[in-house]
């Protein structure tokens, strides 16, 4: 423990990010949509037949996330009418700029993919009725989707992790203290939640495809990685003595520890591990684990964002975080 620094009447030395609930909701919905597009594309490439329903769900979910996330992001601007100024420039030092372009690209490509998928689905439905089989429209749509899903998946991968950079590239001590582990945490949590969400959709559709249990394994692997990053981030926060907002008895602390770690990581890992060891996986365990991951992923984002805002309002934390005196000299 270093000596707590002097403060100026305890006044905050930094200002908190002026963001409301829309940002945590966006940083859940959009990264998960991005990761869903990524998983859908991988499923399409590695198992085109077995993963057909996964691909379908992923493509619609990706568009839904982008369509839901965009307005949220615009709504959080203090002058929403000027949202298009986000596209005036590209700035590599600003994850907000990187993210605006990622979302734009992701939204555009995901729309093409989802539209192509819709054409395929409609034709498949009418083909079943008329028994004419696959027609030229379906073949064209399949090809469009197969091509457009590649840039959509690449943008989706970016979407899944960039929000960690958005937070870490600030002066808020809690966000700044763990740049690498926070990025792994956000990225793996998005992949886990997307796989879990797709698994839930498989169960909800009534006839889970044979590839569905692979989704639970992906979610399990991503959750294990998330747990590792959680430990690493926790260590970095403790070392920098900025972990207060997440470890104290408060709503933020509880949603982090109970919501994101217990419900979102430990419980799902137990469920999915039990299921993996059974010869016939239980549907209940799979759904319970998946629900835990999805809720935990949201609560993690909510807690980290609120804790970061709180962190910047604590002068003891922020001044200690920047208290290194490497090059102090007089004059």
């Amino acid at each position: 423990m270093t000596r707590p620094p002097t403060t100026y009447y305890g006044q905050p030395a930094l200002k908190p990010a002026p963001w409301v609930w829309k940002v945590p909701v966006y940083t859940f919905a959009a990264p998960v949509a991005g990761a869903a597009q990524l998983i859908g594309t991988i499923a399409d490439l590695s198992d085109p037949d077995g993963g057909r329903s996964i691909v379908r769900h992923a493509r619609y979910a990706a568009l839904a996330g982008a369509a839901f996330g965009g307005p949220l992001l615009i709504g959080d601007l203090h002058t929403p009418m000027r949202w298009y100024n986000m596209l005036r420039i590209f700035r590599g030092t600003s994850p907000m700029s990187i993210g605006s372009w990622l979302l734009t690209g992701f939204g555009a490509f995901s729309s093409v993919v989802a539209l192509a998928q819709y054409t395929i689905d409609r034709n498949a439905a009418s083909a079943r009725r008329t028994a004419t089989g696959r027609n030229a429209g379906v073949r064209l749509s399949s090809r469009i989707a197969a091509v457009a899903q590649l840039p959509a998946a690449a943008a989706g991968a970016g979407m899944s992790l960039y929000s960690a950079s958005l937070f870490t590239a600030t002066s808020s001590p809690l966000w700044a203290a763990a740049p690498r582990s926070l990025a792994v945490k956000f990225g793996s949590s998005a992949v886990a939640a997307a796989a879990a969400g797709l698994s839930l959709l498989e169960h909800a559709s009534g006839r889970p495809s044979p590839a569905a249990s692979a989704l639970d394994r992906i979610a399990g692997a991503a959750t294990a990685m998330n747990l590792g990053a959680t430990v690493a981030a926790g260590r970095a926060w403790r070392k920098a003595e900025v972990d207060g907002p997440l470890t104290e008895a408060s709503a933020i602390g509880a949603s982090y520890r109970i919501g994101s770690i217990l419900l979102g990581q430990v419980l799902p890992l137990v469920c999915h591990a039990l299921n993996a060891s059974r010869s016939r996986p239980s549907r209940g365990l799979s759904m319970l684990g998946s629900l835990g991951i999805v809720c935990g992923s949201f609560l993690m984002r909510l807690a980290v964002i609120e804790a970061g805002k709180k962190s910047s309002q604590r002068p003891v934390d922020s001044l200690r975080f920047t208290s290194g005196r490497p090059r102090k000299r007089d004059g």
């Binding site: 990761a35 990524l38 590599g92 030092t93 600003s94 994850p95 990187i98 991968a157 970016g158 899944s160 992790l161 960039y162 960690a164 950079s165 870490t168 590239a169 700044a176 740049p179 690498r180 582990s181 926070l182 990025a183 792994v184 956000f186 990225g187 793996s188 998005a190 992949v191 990685m225 990053a229």
Partner: peptide, 13 residues
Amino acid sequence: RVVPSLASGLAAV
């Protein structure tokens, strides 16, 4: 912190 963060996240994903 932008590059270290993006690189770590990309590696994980």
